[in-house]
Nucleic acid binder design. Sequence first.
DNA 1: TGTACATCAGTGAACGCGCGTTCACTGATGTAC
DNA 2: TGTACATCAGTGAACGCGCGTTCACTGATGTAC
Lengths: 206, 206
Amino acid sequence: MDESAARTRNRRGEGGRLRADILAAATALLEETGSEEAVTLRAVARGVGIAAPSIYAHFPDRTAIVDAVVDQTFHDFTALLRQAVADESDPAERLRRGCAAYLEFAETHPQRYRILFDRREPAEDDPDRPIASIRKESFEFLADAVRRCADAGVSASTDPFGDATAIWVALHGYATLRANMPRFPWPPHDATLDRIVHGLARIAPR
Amino acid sequence: MDESAARTRNRRGEGGRLRADILAAATALLEETGSEEAVTLRAVARGVGIAAPSIYAHFPDRTAIVDAVVDQTFHDFTALLRQAVADESDPAERLRRGCAAYLEFAETHPQRYRILFDRREPAEDDPDRPIASIRKESFEFLADAVRRCADAGVSASTDPFGDATAIWVALHGYATLRANMPRFPWPPHDATLDRIVHGLARIAPR
DNA sequence: TGTACATCAGTGAACGCGCGTTCACTGATGTAC
DNA sequence: TGTACATCAGTGAACGCGCGTTCACTGATGTAC
């Protein structure tokens, strides 16, 4: 996203590259301004260094750009979660790592995290872009981790689904409040994570 | 907020009544649309049934309207919290009632709750409108309740501040996720409240 | 190897819209005499 | 009790702005012959 550089035209057959540039500019704009409304078609075009109408070759309208950012973000988010727990067989550590990765993503990309979870979902899901299912999927990830702890006897949970829900809301609340209140005297990251994992997943402290 | 009714002009000396009407319209607009950006000066004027410039007699600019809604909301919120725990001497029940009131406000006025906690605070607080202090104050309310539990020996907490923080983020996460995901299979309200109060405030189940 | 041409990536000007804000104003209401 | 007048609550028209979107276009790039 270099606004001043004169963009060199893509070669034939490489027009698709502009799509990636548009997406990158939109993502940067969202992350910088912290506002979905700031991601205007014209602002994105300025970010890429192209004329506004050029975007229409790659996206049907403004909302499609934002939607694409959401899709990309969801992909990045779940990939990070999956990667964080890969190769971890100890169920308690697995849960902890998953939670830590969740918070890490939210801290590294606060606005992209917001766009995933901080908007109200529609009464009925668009079959093409089921935001509710997307959210539920990342929740299921958590529920699975708690279930493993319960199955292994590491957690005293009698209701993994309910406990996973509690963990989820705590993670979400921590992620958003922490981003919104940088000057609050937050306890150390690890201490809060401990509270959440031990207190809510009913795992005894190590 | 009746858009069609022809508004009868306020009598002399009662011009201030329009201020209240503007505030009410702005609040209704925010609560209906769920978007701060939707609270435009012109939309508010339409809601009240007046010409847009009439607002300038009562508010210096658009942001002042939103600020006034925030101030009013903060007042309503803390008043509800205070009232919820008045006359309750049992510390555990006091904490529980405080948490329940917190969630109740967020559920009844989801968008007004959002406007309090779901925006990033500025790097430095405006001395006239210290949003950080406002938030901290409602948090202190929670910290005080946890402290009372610890002092009374009802809670096993060794760090009331840290535990109150954990409760706070869980309440906030629950409030916002619940509002954003009406179709998620939420466990019963009471069960989640129990998890939060018992698991995070370290109070043994009754 | 040269050239005419189709294709593709991207542009510039223009549109109508709603916005925040300003300005000069209007007309009902109350008050002084 | 009547009337002139100041005040107050609120208006209508206009401004410049950035927006999303449309339209006809341009000019470089590759290709067919």
